[in-house]
């Protein structure tokens, strides 16, 4: 299967040249599920937090997009606030995904979202509302959550 070959290759690349703030746990038997830890970027409400993220690759990868799910609760407009914690990335939509996209790009983009949330493409609209109306309250809340769940 070409998917496993490509996944191994991409994993190797990420291992040799890791993305700052992104730690990938070694994949043992199940290469379709990656356990990743993302550290909250400094200067954001998520600083000092370590967020566990599950990257799931479909068997049709790279023809079908991977999914990113936060296992650690996070107060973020682009991460669904339920037990799945799906992160909404534009490029991961079935219709917009291109097989030429690499996981490095996906993870870099995910890190970028932690740095600056995308309010135009949010899952949690209530958080967007709050960010617009009362940004301090949002920061406060996100910090609290980071402290409670991610530190």
């Amino acid at each position: 299967m070409s998917s496993s070959k490509r996944i191994t290759k991409e994993y190797g690349e990420l291992e040799n040249d890791p993305i700052p703030g992104v730690t990938i746990k070694p994949i043992d038997q199940d290469m379709y599920n990656w356990d990743i830890e993302m550290s909250g970027p400094a200067g954001t409400p998520y600083a000092n937090g370590t967020f566990k993220v599950r990257l799931t690759l479909p068997t049709e990868y790279p023809f079908k997009p991977p999914t990113i799910a936060f296992k650690t609760k996070i107060y973020h407009p682009n991460v669904s606030n339920d037990d799945k914690g799906n992160m909404c990335l534009g490029m991961l939509r079935t219709d917009d995904w291109k097989p030429s996209c690499k996981l490095r790009t996906v993870l870099t983009l995910a890190m970028k979202l932690l740095n600056e949330p995308d309010t135009n493409d949010a899952v949690e609209t209530s958080i967007v509302e709050q960010m617009k109306s009362n940004h301090d309250a949002y920061v406060q809340r996100a910090k609290e959550w980071t402290k409670t769940y991610a530190v």
């Binding site: 379709y32 599920n33 799931t56 690759l57 479909p58 068997t59 049709e60 079908k64 997009p65 999914t67 799910a69 669904s80 799945k84 799906n86 991961l92 079935t94």
Partner: peptide, 9 residues
């Protein structure tokens, strides 16, 4: 994505 984790086939 939400309905079937991973099996996005």
């Amino acid at each position: 994505v939400r309905n079937d984790n991973g099996a996005v086939s």
